[in-house]
Structure formats: C-alpha cells, structure tokens
Design a protein around this nucleic acid. Sequence first.
DNA 1: GTCTATATTGTGATAGAC
DNA 2: GTCTATCACAATATAGAC
Lengths: 202, 202
Amino acid sequence: MSLKETDTEQIILMAAKEVFFKKGYDGARMQEIADEAGMNKALLHYYFRSKDKLFEAIFNDAFQKFIPRVVEKMNSNASFEEKVETFVENYITTIIEVPQIPIFILTELHRNPERIVGMMKRMGVQPQQILAGMKQDIKEGKIRDIDPRHLIINIVALCVFPFAAKPLLQNILFDNNSGDYHKFLLERKKEVCQFIINSVKI
Amino acid sequence: MSLKETDTEQIILMAAKEVFFKKGYDGARMQEIADEAGMNKALLHYYFRSKDKLFEAIFNDAFQKFIPRVVEKMNSNASFEEKVETFVENYITTIIEVPQIPIFILTELHRNPERIVGMMKRMGVQPQQILAGMKQDIKEGKIRDIDPRHLIINIVALCVFPFAAKPLLQNILFDNNSGDYHKFLLERKKEVCQFIINSVKI
DNA sequence: GTCTATATTGTGATAGAC
DNA sequence: GTCTATCACAATATAGAC
C-alpha cells in the first residue's frame, strides 16, 4: 500500500466522519463527502465500494475509540467514589473531544438496534460485573440501598444528556454562546460526581 | 369539510406518525407512509402537498401534546419536592405512552436545531422562571447550593435517557424482555424523585 | 489512482382519468 | 376524493479514458 493511497483513504475517512456525524446515515450524501474530501464521488466507491461500507468503517472506528476509554476501570476493585469519578471524568473528557458521538450513536441505535447492541456486546460492554460490584457496595453499607440498574442508568444519563441535547441547551440556557457552554460542560465533571455521590450517601 | 375527508386525513396522520417516529425525516418514505395508511402516495400529496408539510404537521402535533403536559406546574409556587415529583411523574407518564418521542425530538433537534429551538420558545419553554424558583429555594436553604442549570439538566436527563437509549438498555439489562423494562420504567418515577431529592438535601 | 461520463434505481411530486 | 401513470430529478454505483 503506497503512501499516497493511505493518505487518500484517511482523507476520505475524515470527510465521511464529518458528514455522517452531522447528517446521520440517511441524511448524508456521497457527493457531500466527496466535496468535503476535495475529490470525486467515484473515488469513494473505489476505496470503500458502497455508502454502507464507508459508514460502517466510520461507525466501528468511532465506537472502538469511544467505548474502551469509557468502560475502562469500571470493573476494578476501587471504591464506589473512585469508580464514579473515573467513569465520569473519562466519559465527559472523551465526549468533549467529539461531542457529536452521543447523538450519533443514539440515532444509529434507533435506526439499527441489533447491530449496535451486537457491537457493544462484542466489545465487552457487559454490565453484570459492574452491577455485582454495586450490589457488594450496598451490602457492605457503603452506599444506600438502590437498584443498581437505576443507578448505572442515572450515571450514564447525567453524562450523556448534555451532549445529546446540546443544540437546545446551549441556545436556551446560554444564548448560544458556545464558549460558555463548553465551560459549563467542564464543570459538569465534578458536578455530576457530587450529584451522584450525594444521592447514594447513607 | 366532509366526514370522509377528515377520516382520511386522520389515517394519514397516524400512518405518517408511525413511519416518521420510526425512521426519522430522512429515513421515512412517502411510499411507506402510503402503504401503512392503505392508500396511494398521490393522496398524501393531495392532503398535505409535500413530505415536508406532512412532517411538520406530525412534529408540531407531537410537540404540542408533549411540552405543555411536561412543563405544567413547573412555575407554580409549590415546594421543590412537589415540583420535582409533578415534573417527573408527568414526564415519564407521558413518554411511556409514546416512548419514541425523545429520540425523535433529539434526532430532529440535531437535523434542524433552529426550527426546534424556535418552536420550543414559542411554546413557552423558558427556563428563566424555573431557574429563579430554584435560586430562591437555595437562598432559603431548602436545597443545597447548586448551579440551577446543572440541576435542571440533571432532572431532565434522568427522565429522558432511559427512553432515548431504550433499545440498548432493554437488551443489555433486561434480555430484551419488554415487559420487564416497562415495569422498570414505571419504577423510575419514584426512583428518580428520590435520587434527585437525596442529592440536593442540605 | 483519479477523473468524466453514464447507467440505474429510488423518490417526491404532478397530471389526468374516473 | 381516489386512483394509475408518469415526470423530473436526486443519489448510489459503475464503466472506461487517462
């Protein structure tokens, strides 16, 4: 594989990511990706055969960069507080870099649930161990009695939602000032941790 | 307007809602809506002129049924606990009836932010008064010191997320048993209230 | 590998018979 | 009001020159 070929492939991937993230699969156009990449439609097909295959390449990549960083350490034997802090910190830091990811994944999850669920499972997103850890914490009286499934959903919800609803929140709460909203999202790391830990205190 | 005409119009609207909710604007096809309604494509255009207009009818309707029920009472002078309980109760009850609404609104928000934000504002989704109420509660020492914007986002996040990510959560936490997940969502009403109130306790 | 041109199919929309 | 037939154009995909 020559250097040139790899370059072109990378340029296509970057352009496709841009467009697919913004418009979703159904809304994206091969022509727009080609324009964004500064080349012809035909080249996209030359490298990736079809829109579907190109999308899959983007999606798998986004997914594989995202999930492991976020799930990391959740199964360690750290304290509940430490686990929450690590998770929230990793999650929000990661998404701030690519804030379109949550809505992208949610949309695709809606469009094609089986595929996403399958991918998640294959990548080791198996909450059983995490749930067991939480049960242990409850049993040992470290946190109050709460259904671990609610707790885990609450944690993820608090991290994801501000990004999924960003266009609305930024406008309605921050007059569309993206700098302010960015600062606000950074604050959320400690805010969310505090919110969770407070609410499970004995 | 004859009875027959109104009937057909309603049938179209129901079919369109079904398809638009499931596939989103870009993914939906006029042909599929016509099939779902048991009639011809041409009729859709006869009644609604264009795909865009039909979509708008659906969206406005979903929106106008949803938002007022949810925002209701948030501006009353009830206690913080009461307000949270009313909001969460209304919100989750409403969404359980039409669980596709959150992802539908989020997707559309992403596809066309200005339109959604505009509609929300026109429908009186103005958080200033709610934020002011929360500030007052903080000042009077009824809840702990917390940025009201974080608080309001947290409340909505906890309500919305389980529906937005339903296909994933139902599969991964409940082995795709929709009955179990439904029970779980009903439980969330009190669970979410408790979670919030605990976390803002002095 | 990259381009232009074109094939092929899909899709929103309209014309016109009934 | 409802249908069939069809238009016009958009979008994915491929053929073939360079």
